[in-house]
């Protein structure tokens, strides 16, 4: 799939959110989209998924099956988890509940099977959002800040799922402003800033032997933490963790 001179703005009188985006997403690859809040990461992902239509230019050769996990799952719907996923699998042309049951089990949603979506916690609702995107093996999986609100166990599932999708020949586009991508192997990095996308900085995961790396501990002001993590990971450094400063 490729972006062909894609321009996008939300309304005619507004400035461009994205300009002249030219990029290619190869099958089997994982692309991490970095950038500050409001830089246009979500917009880029929604253009990729086909949720938004470019104001100019085009997104070509989009795979037939696209899975999109929105940043916030729309939980304000009068369905239970099971009803919702069954309906979504019917939209995907699937019959029966085999896939629904599989993903309910795998994502640990079994005890919430008959809970209304509006009564789910944020993290659990996010898992329902993840499940609906995977009911049919996607040729393109678009994950918008998928770690948001997930517990430690579910966080480890994301790299696992990403690996499965890419192994099956699918491409994965994931946005991340917290630098959680350390767990994603072989990821290409894109960066959105000032309404433009840079792929030339495409720093792949450091190829060198990890035993050759050194660990630097740095302290960052709380308010700057997100930005620092994003900038460091954009430079190709691995983020090993973020923690509170220990009292001496």
């Amino acid at each position: 799939m490729r972006f062909d001179q894609v321009h996008f703005r939300y309304a005619r009188r507004l400035p461009w959110t994205l300009q002249a985006v030219d990029a290619e997403v190869a099958p089997g690859r994982t692309i991490v989209v970095l950038g500050r809040n409001g830089a246009g990461k979500s917009t880029l992902l929604q253009l990729a998924a086909g949720v938004l239509r470019p104001s100019r230019g085009a997104v070509r050769d989009r795979p037939a099956v696209v899975g999109w996990v929105p940043e916030r799952f729309p939980a304000d719907q009068p369905f239970t988890t099971q009803q919702y996923l069954t309906a979504m699998s019917a939209l995907r042309g699937l019959r029966g509940t085999t896939e629904v049951d599989r993903w309910i089990e795998r994502l640990g949603l079994a005890e919430h099977r008959h809970t209304r979506l509006s009564a789910l916690s944020k993290g659990t609702a996010q898992k329902v959002g993840l499940a609906q995107a995977l009911l049919r093996p996607p040729g393109l999986l678009v994950l918008d800040e998928p770690w948001e609100g997930l517990d430690a166990h579910a966080r480890t599932l994301i790299p696992e799922i990403v690996t499965e999708v890419t192994a099956a020949g699918g491409a994965v586009l994931v946005s991340d402003h917290r630098g959680e991508i350390a767990g994603l192997p072989d990821a290409i990095r894109w960066r959105v800033a000032d309404a433009t996308l840079s792929t030339h900085a495409a720093v792949t995961e450091s190829v060198g032997d990890p035993s050759d790396d050194v660990v630097i501990e740095i302290a960052v002001r709380r308010a700057d933490a997100e930005r620092a993590v994003a900038r460091l990971s954009a430079d190709g450094h691995r983020i090993l963790g973020v923690r509170e400063e220990q009292p001496r």
């Binding site: 086909g50 949720v51 899975g67 999109w68 729309p74 719907q77 939209l91 609906q132």
Partner: peptide
């Protein structure tokens, strides 16, 4: 009745 994001999810699933 349908939230905006759900309408977009439906769009991704069945086409615009």
């Amino acid at each position: 009745a349908e939230p905006d994001v759900q309408r977009r999810l439906a769009r991704v699933a069945v086409g615009p």
